[in-house]
Design a protein around this nucleic acid. Structure first.
Length: 884
RNA sequence: GCGCGAUUAGCUCAGCGGUAGAGCAACUCGUUUACACCGAGUGGGUCGGGGGUUCAAUCCCCUCAUCGCGCACCA
């Protein structure tokens, strides 16, 4: 069956994928004695769908996995999904809300059932989308962060860290999300620059009707919870007020004026109100001075019973308005400035976060970060590109206690039970908690489990070992931990990478991965971050449908240069779709010319120079690709194979060999056909990790393969050094130079493409003469010539040019435009002179001759000689024309 | 305020001590039976500015500018 004219990805992608998956090639083999290669897939949100970041990340991982699998490593690419606590709960709540149902009315158990239903419904979406991209992880090992085994790991980790004092319960200010009704971690808070106001408020001094102390605030509503005013101890303006009391307006409470270094004399009025329950800094000041902590908000950020009666139940912003108008009425509002300040928002809820005093569970991140920092310092784990290590250090060295409890229902429930007299029992199971309680109280007591669940990232932090069966001692754990590389995006270094490092080192005694490859961020063609609100999101599946998965993969790979964002546009994908078509057509050509792969073919046996050359180029290519993949320079690998297939193979090799293959009974025909087929086969093999579908399809189409072997399970080639053919490379490079020069001159001089003209060569050395004879047919064909001859003198009115030592002459006096040819020659001569001037200056510089390495000087000498020789020949040609 | 990155052909980007590259776009030519999703060719750059190191700087160092991104501060 002859191949179609173009590759139609939609016709074969699904079929090949199914075949791969069914065959089990994706699977790891813990029992084998091959060295492992392990990648833990960052688990996408189970109910999410694929975006371009996933597509890029998946493609790069798949390239590494396919490559290492081919090189004979026992490869484990561990897939799975994340339960994404807040995000998923929000979606389900929204869905229920549309039906008019509130989760609280429904009850916890019922609600969680609903979430599992939602997971069952939408949970396959993203994994099937990963399949569309051609990803080849070990699907039967797929895990979910909420599955049984992972839950066990979570409980074990929580209990052990608690017993070691690394998890504890504490009453501190947390970041409270008044919409989602949960605490969130520092990382889930985003600071947004917001236009706001600075209000200057006068607080009357107790016992005086004249004196006031003016404070500045951006959040006047919090004054209801003020318990002090603080000034700098050095500030003379207020020195006499320290120790006195001010009367809190509206509330009427006397609050003490205290002194603390924290206050900046220059800022605002130099006097600051202190609200320990509603500001992180105020909380610290309050602790130092034993101030009363008055919480004035409820979980909805409405004024609670601690506020004045007429404010109770009022939303924080309404309260602000009312307070301001009251202050104004009392003439206590001194002035208002418009300012821009940053305001904390919840990254999921997009509402303003309130600092809120609560009991929560914390991980002692500071302690756990120490060995994790050390591991990167000593190079046990390395970031690629290395510059991300600074980001990692900076965060890890300033790490805060990690608040891990969330007031949600969807997630791992905290394994802590509360008993009488404020006792807490942290155990892996209820039975153990009951037993511990019985031991303490000497009788059975009633326990109540902590209602809260853990931060999603707590379970993802265990991913590199929990997926391998921990806490059981499994063969997988022994073999595949630590992983080789973790591939992810920079925005997740803190959320995930850092936490995996801490947990992995603590529980496994070793880092979770040896390398962290941080890939680029994908933006739209204008360089803007893609976001739903901007409407500039490109759906990777649309691109797959339009251009094929291979084209999308190759585009992302070719653009994945280290340390730079990717600006993606359809044009780029289209270009690489064209590349796929090019490969397809080269295969079609092979097929039409009976270039059929022969399993017995030995590239070592080729005799013809073009064949030796192309074999040499294949070995170069394989080295370049391996190097690219192994050093995470995926774009270099992609460029190398693109240039080989389109340039070396299609533009030159196939053209060089057409005269051999297409003439009857040529003695080299057989060898050349087999070489051609072999080269295509190698190209398919080397391209397979990047473009798995088209290569598999062509591999399948080009020949019957023994045992129906698939390309995906072929071995990565290891070519012997004996395939190198430097002489052949030199010879073919000369051919390329010669043909290119003739074509260029022809086009410059407007010689019609159809005009078959003669070529005369002057001053050719013996080797060149030999080559001209050997490749006469090829040269004639590719440069559109009639004959090639040698000459001692150029005829009048000919075009002349130079290739190496030889002058090439196109005697076409009848069609040549002499003025144009003169102009062309002058231009060439000018260029050469410019180069020669540069070299002369250099060579005349004593310091250069004295200091530069010999080889550099030698190089300049040889360039000079070449330029001079060419210059002479062209000058002679010009002279001849001018004489004419 | 601190830090990181970017600034190279019209566009998107490689390169990173010693001849400045690619893809796309532009222009010219071409229905030479693998491919017009193609072929052949051409033009286009004092490598952001200024200083320094070096025999030699697009590349290393300093500085400035512009853009982007983190982090911190914000009473």
């Amino acid at each position: 069956m002859m191949l179609e004219k173009t590759f139609q990805p939609e016709k074969v992608e699904a079929q090949h994928y199914e075949q791969w998956e069914q065959s089990g090639v994706f699977g790891a083999h813990p029992e084998s004695n091959k060295a492992p290669f392990t990648i833990m897939m960052p688990p996408p949100n189970v109910t999410g769908s694929l975006h371009l970041g996933h597509a890029l990340n998946t493609t790069l991982q798949d390239i590494m996995v396919r490559y290492h699998r081919m090189t004979g490593r026992d490869t484990l690419w561990q897939p799975g999904t994340d339960h994404a606590g807040i995000a998923t709960q929000m979606v389900v709540e929204r869905n229920l809300g549309a039906e008019g149902i509130n989760r609280r009315d429904m009850g916890r158990e019922k609600f969680i059932e609903k979430v599992w239903e939602w997971k069952a419904y939408s949970g396959g979406t993203i994994t099937s989308q990963l399949r569309r991209l051609g990803a080849s992880p070990d699907w039967p090992r797929e895990r979910f962060t909420m599955d049984e085994g992972l839950n066990k790991a979570v409980r074990r980790v929580f209990v052990q860290l608690h017993k070691q004092g690394l998890i504890y319960r504490d009453k501190r200010l947390v970041n409270w999300d008044p919409k989602l009704h949960t605490a969130i971690s520092d990382l889930e808070v985003v600071q947004k620059e917001t236009k706001g106001h600075m209000w200057y408020i006068k607080y009357p001094i107790e016992g005086s009707t004249e004196r006031f102390i003016t404070i500045a605030t951006t959040r006047p509503e919090t004054m209801l919870g003020d318990t002090a005013i603080v000034v700098n101890p050095e500030d003379e303006r207020y020195a006499d007020l320290v120790g006195k009391f001010a009367i809190l307006p509206i509330v009427g409470r006397p609050i003490k004026i205290i002194a603390d270094d924290y206050v900046d004399k220059e800022f605002g009025t130099g006097a600051m109100k202190v609200t320990p329950a509603h500001d992180f800094n105020d909380f610290e000041v309050g602790k130092r001075h034993n101030l009363e902590v008055i919480n004035i908000l409820d979980i909805n950020a409405r004024i609670n019973e601690n506020g004045p009666e007429e404010y109770q139940g009022m939303d924080r912003y309404e309260a602000r308005k009312k307070i301001l108008s009251e202050l104004e009425a009392q003439d206590l509002l001194e002035k208002v400035d418009s300012i821009t300040n940053s305001v904390p928002y919840g990254d999921r809820s997009d509402v303003v976060i309130e600092p809120f005093l609560m009991d929560q569970w914390y991980v002692d991140a500071k302690t756990m970060a120490k060995p994790a920092i050390e591991a990167v310092r000593t190079g046990k784990t390395e970031f690629v590109p290395k510059s991300w290590e600074n980001t990692y250090y900076h965060w890890m060295e300033n790490i805060q206690p990690w608040c891990i409890s969330r007031q949600l229902w969807w997630g791992h429930q905290i394994p802590a039970w509360y008993g009488p007299e404020g006792t807490i029992f942290v155990e892996e199971t209820e039975e153990e908690a009951l037993a511990a309680a019985r031991k303490q109280f000497g009788e059975d007591v009633r326990l109540e489990r902590d209602e809260d669940v853990l931060d999603t990232w707590f379970s993802s932090a265990l991913w590199p070992f929990s997926t391998l069966g921990w806490p059981e001692k499994t063969p997988e754990l022994a073999k595949y931990y630590p992983g080789d590389v973790l591939t992810t995006s920079f925005d997740i270094i803190f959320f995930w990478v850092a936490r995996m490092m801490m947990m992995g080192i603590h529980f496994m005694g070793d880092v979770p991965f040896k390398k962290v490859y941080i890939h680029a961020l994908i933006r739209d063609a204008k360089g803007q971050k893609m976001s739903k609100s901007k409407g500039n999101v490109i759906d990777p599946l649309d691109l797959v449908e339009k251009y094929g998965a291979d084209a999308l993969r190759f585009t992302l790979t070719a653009m994945a240069a280290q340390g730079r964002d990717i600006k993606l546009s359809d044009d780029r994908v289209e270009g690489y779709r064209n590349f796929a078509t090019k490969i397809w057509n080269s295969a079609r050509y092979c097929q039409m010319n009976q270039c059929i792969p022969d399993v017995n073919f030995d590239p070592q046996s080729v005799t013809a120079t073009p064949n030796k050359w192309v074999v040499d180029q294949v070995t170069e290519l394989s080295t370049a690709i391996s190097k690219g993949i192994e050093s995470y320079k995926f774009n270099d690998a992609a460029t190398a194979i693109y240039q080989f297939i389109w340039g070396t193979f299609c533009d030159w090799y196939l053209e060089f060999t057409k005269p051999i293959i297409q003439s009857e009974g040529h003695p080299l025909a057989e060898e050349t056909r087999k070489t051609t087929a072999w080269v295509l086969d190698q190209a398919l093999l080397l391209l397979n990790p990047f473009m798995p579908f088209i290569t598999e399809e062509l591999y399948n189409e080009m020949a019957e393969r023994p045992l129906n072997k698939m390309l995906i399970s072929s071995e990565w080639p290891d070519y012997p050094a004996t395939l190198k053919a430097p002489a052949a490379v030199e010879e073919m490079n000369w051919m390329i130079r010669l043909i290119t020069e003739i074509r260029s001159v022809r086009a410059d001089m407007n010689v019609p493409a159809a005009a078959k003209i003669n070529l005369l060569v002057k001053g050719a050395n013996a080797a060149t003469q030999e080559r001209l004879k050997t490749y006469e047919e090829i040269i004639c064909r590719m440069a559109r010539l009639e004959t090639i001859g040698l000459t001692a003198d150029a005829p009048k009115g000919a075009i002349q040019s130079v290739v190496d030592e030889a002058t090439i002459i196109l005697p076409i006096a009848d069609i040549i435009d002499l003025d144009k040819e003169r102009a062309r020659l002058r231009k060439e001569i000018e260029k050469l002179n410019a180069e020669l001037t540069k070299i002369h200056t250099k060579m005349a510089d004593e310091k250069f001759v004295k200091n530069a390495p010999e080889e550099i000087i030698e190089e300049q000498r040889s360039r000079q000689a070449n330029f001079e020789s060419t210059l002479n020949k062209l000058s002679q040609a010009l002279k001849q024309l001018e004489a004419a």
